[in-house]
Amino acid sequence: MTVPTTQEIAVRVEGMSKYYGTFHALRDINLTVARGEKIVVCGPSGSGKSTMIRCINRLEEHNAGSIMVLGTELNDDVGNIDEIRREVGMVFQHFNLFPHMTVLENCVLAPMLVRKMPRAEAEATARRYLEKVRIPEQASKYPGQLSGGQQQRVAIARSLCMQPQIMLFDEPTSALDPEMISEVLDVMVTLASEGMTMICVTHEMGFARRVADRVIFMDAGEIVEEAPPEIFFTSAKSERTQLFLSQVLGH
């Protein structure tokens, strides 16, 4: 693997630790993500995967180590935090659409308030992305009127409307009924094929195999294994990884 230059680095995490009280949630995390790279993070529940990606846009505060996102250091500087959040989109397990706004309003809100985009332009952008996630006809509905899969696709479109350079996915399909998972994964695959930098916490191993450049396995707050999918799924080094894989792929 070639070492990426600073220009090409999207996220660099060095020696990051995170505590909840005395509980050591993340231990010495080191991770470098190049621009355009797709990372899949997996691991048992409580292993710190979500906490780790939530540190990247400061939904959680890290206690030690450093995080650089697109060349900006993530620290207590509110300006830096705002700058990073503008460029980093996030999709949540429970969609977190704003229930009191229509789908279209959900999509134009941040571009208009944060990027100061005029409404006409923001709406055009929103409709383009709603088209992309194959849901343009639902623009005037409220989130509560949509199915889970549709809501999650709207959530993806809403993030994309900010035209972020990095997308974080926090178990985007875990709250969905089985028949709706593929419609969301299809959108994510399309996004990946267009060169978006993606960090996905997911248990969808099929997706990992198809899309990921690297798969990261976490357990007990540590990165245990890091490998390209073809190696990760066939010849994992760590016993913990092998056990986890046998549990998820076992049936």
Partner: peptide
């Protein structure tokens, strides 16, 4: 609120 933060809202 997390979704709003992640979108960069002040």
């Amino acid at each position: 609120e997390e979704a709003a933060m992640a979108l960069g809202l002040s």
